[in-house]
Design a protein around this nucleic acid. Structure first.
Lengths: 395, 395
DNA sequence: AGGCTTTTGTCAAGCGTGCAGCATTATTCG
DNA sequence: CGAATAATGCTGCACGCTTGACAAAAGCCT
């Protein structure tokens, strides 16, 4: 406490107590077990660099707290005494990821290992007002809880994916295609029922996370994800971390008029050979199919679309110099028609051409990314502040 | 050691020994002292959260190792026994930052606090071959050493700033305006004389670092730095860290033809009212002066230049959504003529308009940034792996 | 079947570290 | 010169990790 003298940088609080050291060691053991098959104490000891007896003590404590579960030795034919194996108790907590779209709400439940244990998809009227849409979100989330017999307090994190840039408060005030949604604060809404942290994030950004987690860019740390569909958007991962920008509007290069992302899909909708009966939602799919079959006008439409898509992508690539560009979104099903030309255009305009890959995740990528973001938050809380609390750490 | 079985993620090595804990505490005390005025043990104890006796023991050790120096109490009029103060011994090590330009080599020497203790500026013939240029670099560095009577081993880090994207090996193979420089590896050259780490980095990126360190963007974590001069370039700081991109080519948006950064300065050179006698190097300065005096043609030239500058800046801003855009480079001396229009253009094209500020650093910004990068590297080595080695930690 | 090898599980002793508390010292104020 | 004040220095205590040793549980060999 500075009395009245020049108070400098008070309260750095990095001093490590000997009891804090034990927490850190416990965490490093948990970390050494996450995502790995069940391991023996000896393995954990070598992995963490701790001694075997020391590791054993900590492991016992973690088992008592419910973080680890014991796997009794099965008849594996090794020479010495068969070792007990310990497994991270992924069921100690769960996270929920929600994708709020115009036509549907998709909710997923996963355990702490990220294993998806339930998926709910409910339809929504595109014109539904915010209250109605939130009711559907609630219903989807509720179904996730019911599927595993969980109570709200068993959920450690929730992430909601929406379209449009998300500001710090979790709202999409700058722009949203959902009617009336600009005034909605989904985090606040869910906080009434859940005590865990609720994050709201842009759908492109979440899809980018998903591609790095389980999709086409698992090996990369610098990723530009381009969502190609009836809307065009981007999500950026730099140095392995999702980047939001200072106001949450990173990746919105499509707002630049010279980048014709807003009008790019119209090339497909206005294709000359498009029959009259095709619905506007199915137009793109029809054009891609026709182009694949050799239809001249359709091929031209796809070429024009890709050219426009490439301009914005080039701007992103030149700005960030990523390792990988991932093409996602609805049109990525037709990546075979797009990727070649996209690569050529980038090769023409960019200094260093990154790898270009098609998304390997389907329509669930946004919800998956939402799960990943929620898990990231849980990890940060666990490993950052470090609270190996007994059994069930709440918010 | 995995024998032949499924070797998973070996060697995580995060286990904290009790002796390692002491290292960490020593480091946190050093950190609590860096950049602060000399402090008493009691102050350090409260700042780090450690106990006073414990702090005292560590401080004694740090003094013995040469990291801290004692400041005997002067006659400050407080009640009670006057406290010894301890100061971080910034002179324990030094770093060197070099700015290799077309016309000059600028080298700076700084201590561990970043206080610049010597600056050398040597002229170079723009057409000099790589060997000649490297000789000048050596001379400049040598002068830094001589100024403080230092030996090469007293230097803990060196950073060299060059124009053009720098790859992982430290070379500028993609592009460089210096004749023959593409084949040069400055890091390797300096490694012959210095055992410390030598980094090579792009000049725009270093200038960006400098602006965040001591310049116009000290408070920001997300910065787009635009170097405006006869060459146009950019440096990006995201979440407080300089971003290089996967191949070191981040920020090279100027390579996009639609972004007219390459030709933007020609608007100034081709100004109609420019007298015949003015040298090409001084043309821009003349035009800015004329514009400020009210010359119609000059004002038009500046307006056209700024319009072109704004296109690329808008692409960077929309991609990254930074908090601040810093206008640097030689033309930032005329920021009064540029900033207003630049802000208007960004306001027209961008979703969320960042603050726009003029650089407060002069021609030394690149060398300053080089110092900062070298200091960052030293810090990372110290605080990361943690080696409070005795007196003088070498590479 | 019995001994040998190998690896695990467990215990005891030792050590380094940080913390709390008390005595000591140096300085100002009355 | 004595009282008050605050920093310094010292001792005992608690905690957790490590080393080393030994018993237990399996497979392999004779």
């Amino acid at each position: 406490m500075g009395t009245e003298g020049a108070t400098v940088t008070d309260q750095v609080t990095t001093g490590t107590d000997v009891t804090r050291m034990r927490e850190l060691n416990a965490l490093s053991i948990v970390r050494a077990l996450r995502g790995n098959p069940p391991s023996t104490v000896t393995e954990l000891a070598t992995r963490t660099g701790l001694s075997r007896p020391g590791t054993d003590v900590i492991v016992q404590g973690l088992v008592a707290d419910g973080w680890l579960t014991v796997v009794e030795p099965d008849g594996s034919s090794v020479v010495g005494r068969p070792a007990r194996r310990y497994r991270f108790n992924a069921g100690a907590g769960h996270v929920i990821g929600v994708d709020v779209g115009a036509h549907k709400v998709l909710a997923m439940l996963a355990d702490l290992d990220g294993t998806v244990t339930w998926t709910t998809r409910l339809p929504v009227d595109p014109g539904a007002d915010p209250a109605a849409r939130l009711t559907v979100v609630d219903a989807a989330v509720e179904e996730c809880l019911a599927s595993a017999g969980l109570r709200p307090d068993d959920i450690w994190g929730i992430t909601v994916g929406v379209t449009g840039p998300v500001d710090a408060s979790g709202r999409t005030t700058l722009f949203t295609p959902l009617p009336g949604w600009a005034s909605v604060n989904p985090a606040e809404h869910l906080a009434a029922r859940f005590s865990c942290p609720v994050q709201v994030e842009n759908d492109c950004k979440l899809a980018a996370l998903a591609e790095r987690w389980q999709g086409a860019a698992r090996d990369a740390d610098d990723i530009v994800y381009v969502l190609a569909g009836m809307r065009t958007g981007a999500g950026l991962i730099i140095d392995g971390t999702l980047r939001r920008g200072h106001g949450g509007a990173a990746g919105e290069i499509g707002a630049l008029r010279a980048v014709r992302w807003l009008t790019a899909p119209s090339h497909l909708e206005k294709c000359a050979s498009l029959p009259a009966g095709v619905d506007t939602d199915d137009a793109a799919a029809w054009v891609f199919a026709a182009a694949r079959a050799g239809d001249k006008a359709a091929r031209t439409a796809v070429r024009r679309y890709t050219r426009d898509l490439a301009v914005g992508t080039a701007a992103l690539v030149l700005t960030l110099d990523p390792q990988v560009v991932v093409l996602g979104g609805g049109f990525s099903r037709s990546a075979d028609l797009i990727l070649g030309q996209l690569a050529r255009e980038l090769g023409r305009t960019c200094l260093r051409v990154p790898e270009i890959r098609a998304s390997t995740l389907g329509a669930e990528s946004v919800a998956l990314g939402a799960l990943r973001l929620a898990l990231n938050e849980v990890d940060a809380r666990l490993f950052g502040t470090g609270l190996p609390a007994p059994v069930a750490p709440r918010a």
